[in-house]
Design a protein around this nucleic acid. Structure first.
Ligand code: FES
Ligand code: FES
Lengths: 165, 165
DNA sequence: TCTATTAAGGATATCAAATATCCGTAATAA
DNA sequence: TTATTACGGATATTTGATATCCTTAATAGA
């Protein structure tokens, strides 16, 4: 069980886009170079973010991507779900229905109107995971990065990005 | 991102074993038939549980599996980690190190002594997921099942299991 | 108008992991 | 002695993640 590497890429790309000036765009090519990942494949992740309404793509020269909403209105969960999907990590295949003892019982007596108790525990854990991710916004991440990334690297990267904008 | 189907199987098997009388064993063959899953493959999951010290296997006729600890001392997390492993769902590949701006900087100025802020958020969510799973024991699950599974099915299944013990 | 650049998406190839089966070994109860 | 069982190694099959390629349409700038 492992999230796609696209998730790490998408989060880092959003962090960069959050630092962009108003109405500036950064193309896939540069985002790929900045993170050292294959441009064509990263493009798929960015398309998913675009589909989810998290980023906006603009065509033509001087085009590229920017955030579609303020960074304070985008959470980690939004980004993770855009790339990874919204399905719970635990999928119940209803193996309880395979119990041979049910065979000779009336459908009523077999009684599985409510979800399996085991699945409910697993889904609750999934909910806790998503709640945790939904509690951190891109704006908060940007603040943390400003505090933890060394100033020279931060400044140099900002200039590098600005030059391609 | 999806947990293995083995997780659902292992949890249901443990729920059955938790209902066993003292010093009774249930073999893989019957656990597989009860849940309608391939015996040989289920065996792999049970071996993982055995390896983790959650269940105990006994050889020979009238052998099989039983819990290695009281049901109150076994959590969902124990079972999930036995089957799925302990690695976080989010794996950081350190793409921040691919930033071309780092190239001309001293290793000190590049400064990544601390884990990436993005990874820390993802790992915190993983921790929340595991904490949730660690908060429910097999004993509590058994209680819930007694309340929610119809009495006739519960009784019939108990008899079916007892007969193969 | 023409050209270069870009997002978007379809098609397809490659690779890794999950899923599943098969077999041999050793232990054990009857 | 025989049947039964856990255990582990080897291997096949299937699925999904990863990655590349190509076409289309939009757009900015020369
Ligand atoms: S039947 Fe799917 S978790 Fe119980
Ligand atoms: S470098 Fe891996 S999450 Fe930032």
């Amino acid at each position: 069980m492992q999230l796609k590497n696209q998730v790490e890429w998408a989060l880092h790309c959003c962090a960069i886009l959050a630092g962009l000036g108003p109405d500036r765009h950064l193309p896939t090519k540069d985002l790929a170079e900045l993170h050292g990942v294959p441009k064509e494949y990263l493009s798929k992740a960015l398309q998913a973010l675009s589909q989810a309404g998290i980023v906006e793509g603009t065509l033509g020269p001087s085009g590229g991507y920017r955030l579609a909403r303020p960074a304070g209105a985008i959470t980690f969960l939004n980004i993770v779900e855009a790339v990874e999907g919204r399905q719970s990590s635990f999928v119940c295949t209803e193996i309880r229905k395979n119990n041979p003892c049910r065979g000779s019982m009336s459908p009523a007596a077999a009684g599985d109107s409510r979800p399996c108790a085991i699945a409910r525990v697993m889904w609750e854990a999934d909910r806790a995971w998503r709640a945790s991710l939904d509690g951190v916004t891109l704006a908060e991440l940007a603040k943390t990065l400003e505090k933890t990334v060394p100033a020279p690297l931060l400044k140099k990267t900002a200039a590098w990005v600005e030059a391609r904008t």
